[in-house]
Simulated assay, not measured.
Amino acid sequence: MNCLIRSIRSDEWPEAKALRLTALQDPVARLAFLETYEEALARPDSYWQERAARAAHDATGAQQIIAQGPDGDWVGTLTVLVEEPGTTDWAGFPVERRQGHIVGVYVLPEYRGIGLTEVLFDDALEWAWHAGVERVRLIVHEDNTRAQRFYGKVGFKPSGRVVPLEKAPGESEFEFVLER
């Protein structure tokens, strides 16, 4: 595979922005992400700088992990957010325990199917467990069966929670969890 897996540095916001914009142009982006390419493109650089700083290698509330290909280009990413008990999540559900939430999973098409996503998940889970979370969760669109199969393959199980999508009435997402 020959990829380096690591957390981002806060000064790497241009690379984080570029990979996110690439991800949002993927044919299944509508099923995988809650924002559009146009929304992300319109955000000022300060947004991307703050986003990178909140998830950089020395951050404690989130971690963005990337895969660098042999040429140094970023070829995959995901982010783990720490959700604290007593708060509510992005969908308005109460957070009942300290948990990790994996978001923004993306691997360039030419790097799919070689085990890279598994390695990214291994690193993300290691970071999350070290951060003291009790479980890790993720949310996946009801029609994104490829992602659902992958999440099951790496140990996640459906929790039974269904999240209706405000931006797409009639559509929903499913929560998958991995207990420690």
Rank of each mutant, 00 (worst) to 15 (best):
Ala53Gln: 03
Leu31Thr: 00
Asp26Pro: 01
Val28Tyr: 08
Glu15Pro: 01
Lys167Arg: 13
Ala168Ser: 13
Arg9Asn: 13
Lys17Ala: 01
His141Lys: 03
Leu78Glu: 05
His130Ala: 15
Glu126Ile: 13
Asp73Pro: 07
Asp45Ile: 03
Leu78Tyr: 10
Ser7Glu: 08
Arg51Thr: 12
Gly113Glu: 11
Gln68Val: 04
Ala56His: 09
Glu35Gly: 09
Glu134Tyr: 00
Leu41Met: 09
Pro94Trp: 14
Phe121Ala: 03
Phe33Met: 07
Val140Arg: 02
Lys153Val: 07
Glu84Ser: 07
Thr36Trp: 04
Pro70Ala: 12
Ala29Asp: 01
Asp122Arg: 09
Gly72Pro: 04
Val136Gln: 03
Asp122Trp: 05
Gly170Ala: 11
Phe176Val: 02
Ala16Asp: 13
Val136Asn: 01
Thr145Tyr: 15
Val177Ala: 06
Glu35Gln: 11
Val177Met: 06
Ser172Ile: 05
Arg135His: 08
His141Ser: 04
Ile66Cys: 03
Arg54Asp: 15
Glu12Ser: 03
Gln63Cys: 14
Gly115Val: 15
Ala67Thr: 11
Arg137Glu: 12
His141Glu: 05
Thr22Glu: 15
Gly170Lys: 11
Thr117Glu: 15
Glu179His: 04
Gly69Ser: 08
Lys153Arg: 14
Val154Cys: 11
Asp26Phe: 04
Leu31His: 02
Arg161Ala: 04
Glu142Val: 08
Gly72Asn: 08
Phe33Leu: 06
Glu142Thr: 08
Val95Lys: 03
Pro27Thr: 01
Ala53Glu: 04
Arg98Lys: 15
Val103Phe: 13
Glu171Ser: 04
Arg146Phe: 14
Leu178Ile: 07
Ile139Ala: 05
Pro164Gln: 08
Phe176Pro: 00
Ala124Met: 03
Ala23Val: 10
Asp71Ile: 00
Trp127Ala: 02
Ala53Leu: 05
Val105Ala: 11
Gly152Lys: 04
Gly69Ala: 08
His130Gln: 14
Tyr151Glu: 02
Arg112Phe: 12
Ile5Pro: 07
Ala59Pro: 10
Ile114Met: 12
Val162Pro: 04
Leu78Lys: 06
Phe150Gln: 06
Leu24Cys: 12
Leu21Tyr: 15
Arg137Ser: 08
Asn2Trp: 15
His101Gly: 07
Arg146Pro: 12
Leu165Val: 13
Ile5Met: 09
Asp71Leu: 00
Leu81His: 04
Leu41Lys: 06
Ala55Ile: 05
Gln49Ser: 10
Pro27Asn: 02
Leu21Val: 14
Arg97Glu: 12
Gln25Asp: 15
Glu173Trp: 10
